[in-house]
Design a protein around this nucleic acid. Structure first.
Lengths: 207, 207
DNA sequence: ATAATTTTCCGAATTGAATCCGAACAAGCG
DNA sequence: CGCTTGTTCGGATTCAATTCGGAAAATTAT
């Protein structure tokens, strides 16, 4: 059973292993990523992998958690800017930031996400949900009139999941029928129009 | 290298293997589904697996194709009914049919889809896209006024991908924030509102 | 400083699942 | 029937994941 690292040296080892996991996965794909590869890239012995990880799967799981955590950290500081924008622009911005983020480091994350489904679909999305829910919450506070639209929880759920998967799927799609910008624009317009339509319905009802 | 089955006997074997794959995967999960399990359930020797499948992965791939194909076949005959409905009702119907389909056979497909990604289903979605695109195309023909809304390709792309993944994700979500019906209603309303809003914009511009 | 203790690292040895292979069994065919 | 081709099988082989026991490094106690 794996131990928790107590010293700096071992924390560095754990880091190196996770990092090596990303490199190996992006270079060789999921099928050819062996424990020996990861160990070699990390510059440690194979045995060391099992000091801190239950098994190979656990390494992928740690990678997934790190990825989601990094994504959340990337979005967090954007919050104040996003909540000041019109909603469709906010969505476009968010999707474009997410895309740039995935393409960093020579597309390492993107390549990994392409195989992510293959390796650990259990993407530990919770921290990402938390940040995005927070953005939405603040947005509603900042634009109180939007509180009148119905089905906010459902639209939020669909927006978050739809957004995440639409981007991942689009970037993995070898021959997408629409460009990324068109897709981002479509998603933004869809939610934007939904809200506009809802508000006009509310107005009609009250007026 | 795998052969194509020439006789009925071998075609039955291939079928039995794919079928056994579904059973094994739904019973034991992806980690414990070994080639011996699949062979045993199929009632064939392990060696037989490799007569028609390159490797274990190829069996999962065949399962994926079969699943998508079955899904498409399920949707196909609904087309005439769907195109006569208001769009939001059509979407709700489609999502509910998809859900029932996933829950058939004691949820076999659903259990598999839950693990699908974990096992490297690169879901071969093409046939499903084809059927759904067809439904949408016919819908547009049947309701010519909707041809005036903009971003139809993007909305189609998002609608299809978003719909598929929203359902799968929701059914896999141990603690969804909204009920299935709320989600279906949300997706239906979002697209319905989008079209209404677009049409009202077009009307304003021309009037 | 030195010993004792804990933490970390390692890689040869083990294990077990995936895959191969060649003999045996069936089917089609003159 | 022989002959060819298609099919099945399961033991033997291969190779990656995991284990294990001890060496090396760091930390703590004396």
């Amino acid at each position: 059973m794996p131990r928790k690292p107590k010293q700096d040296r071992s924390r560095a080892t754990v880091d190196a292993i996770v990092e090596a996991g990303f490199i190996a996965l992006s270079q060789r794909g999921p099928a050819d990523t062996t424990t020996r590869h990861i160990a070699e890239i990390a510059g440690v012995g194979v045995g060391s992998l099992y000091e801190y990880f239950e098994n190979k799967q656990a390494i992928f799981s740690a990678m997934s958690q790190r990825f989601i955590s990094d994504t959340a950290s990337m979005i967090q500081p954007l919050t104040p800017t996003l909540v000041q924008m019109p909603i469709d622009e906010a969505i476009r911005t968010l999707l474009n930031e997410f895309r740039s983020f995935l393409e960093r480091d020579d597309g390492r994350y993107l390549k990994c996400v392409r195989h992510a489904m293959a390796v650990d679909f259990e993407l530990h999305l919770d921290p990402l949900y938390k940040v995005l829910n927070n953005v939405i919450m603040r947005y509603l506070m900042e634009h109180p009139e939007t509180l009148r639209v119905s089905r906010i929880p459902a639209i939020t759920y669909i927006g978050i999941n739809g957004g995440i998967f639409a981007v991942i799927r689009h970037l993995s799609d070898p021959d997408p029928m629409v460009s990324f910008d068109e897709m981002a624009d479509g998603l933004a317009s869809m939610i934007g129009h939904y809200i506009e339509r809802e508000l006009s319905l509310v107005e009609d009802a009250s007026g």
